[in-house]
Simulated assay, not measured.
Amino acid sequence: MSLALTAVASYGGPVSAATVVTVATDGSGNFTTVQAAVNAAPAGGSGYEIDVKPGTYRGTVSIPSAKTHVTLKGVGSGRDQVVIVENHPASTYGTQGSATVAVSANDFRAENLTFANDYDEAKNGSSQAVALDLNADRAVLNNVRVLGNQDTLLLWTAGTGTVGRSYIRKSYVEGDVDFIFGRGTAVFDRTEIHSLSRGSSTNNGYVTAAATTDTNPYGLLFYRSTLTSDAQAKSVYLGRPWHPSGDAHAVGQVLFRECTLGAHIRDDPWTDMSGFSWRSARFSEYANTGAGAAVNANRPQLSASQAPSYTPNAYLAGSDGWNPVF
């Protein structure tokens, strides 16, 4: 059913005594569903890799907090070959309940696959519909796609005093309204952030809705990433401040650093939300380029003296010195 080995993960760092199992829709693996493979993972494990063969795996997946050090790895020729998808809207299941994949376990890894929520807003009405809920610490996504519309990627933590860190490398995240949101800390490194068009000439959505706790200096960092869209020029916001349940201690922190911004980004890229001013949040840019880049009174810039304190390593180090960057 499984085998033990010593390997070096392609996202960097040694993996020792890992158990590897295979999921395949045609029955050629150890399991036919991803959830069944997760259920077989030991609690508190030191390494459990689920190799997923090409195919579409419809259904939700939950990785509970006890199942640490789980890796989901697509073994197809590209990240579009393995798709884990469901179509649950928050209007029926609640925001977190709508997630196709919900991760509550620390030290989660995903590589070379797609997480998607294909709820059809045009047919069924607007609703949040989460593709991936990362509610954990020290998560790494390498060469993955995260696809949805509203609220595609949730970065969450167990409580306002808990920090959850994610490193998202050379990946692709797609959506329209608040599609990267939450109070988690995350670095998007050399990742494509694609805003879908909602058919508007003025407002095609918001890339982020950060709810970073005010005691946490680090929220969302987009580093050397590319923002793309087919939407109308100057019609997409970089973000707005989310205060869950009106929490005054949720003071979003977002930085777009050395990114290439497409023409879809507005000249006034930050906006208010639910009565809270964006100017009270911690929103900034630094050394961005592209048709959507600009410096004006509505676009706070990080200073050169501040820049060394806002690097990928600074965001992710925490108290344990975690450094997944490669």
Rank of each mutant, 00 (worst) to 15 (best):
T6Y: 07
V8I: 14
A9D: 05
S10H: 06
G12S: 06
A24N: 07
D26C: 07
S28C: 14
S28I: 07
A40N: 03
A41K: 06
G44Y: 11
G55C: 13
I63K: 05
V70D: 04
V75I: 11
D80S: 14
Q81F: 14
Q81T: 09
Q81D: 10
N87C: 09
A102S: 04
E111W: 10
K123P: 14
Q128I: 15
Q128N: 15
A136N: 01
D137A: 01
N142C: 05
N143M: 07
R145K: 02
A158E: 11
A158Y: 08
G159F: 01
G161Q: 09
R165Q: 01
S171L: 07
G184T: 00
G184S: 05
V187S: 01
T191Q: 02
S197H: 04
S200P: 03
S201I: 13
G205V: 13
T208F: 03
N216R: 04
Y218E: 03
G219A: 03
L220F: 03
R224Y: 10
S229D: 00
D230A: 14
P241A: 07
H249E: 09
H249I: 15
V254E: 00
R257C: 00
E258R: 15
C259T: 08
T260L: 09
W270Y: 13
M273S: 13
S280M: 09
R282A: 11
T289R: 05
T289W: 06
A297D: 04
S303E: 13
A304Q: 11
P308Y: 02
S319Y: 07
S319V: 08
G321M: 09
W322L: 09
P324C: 11
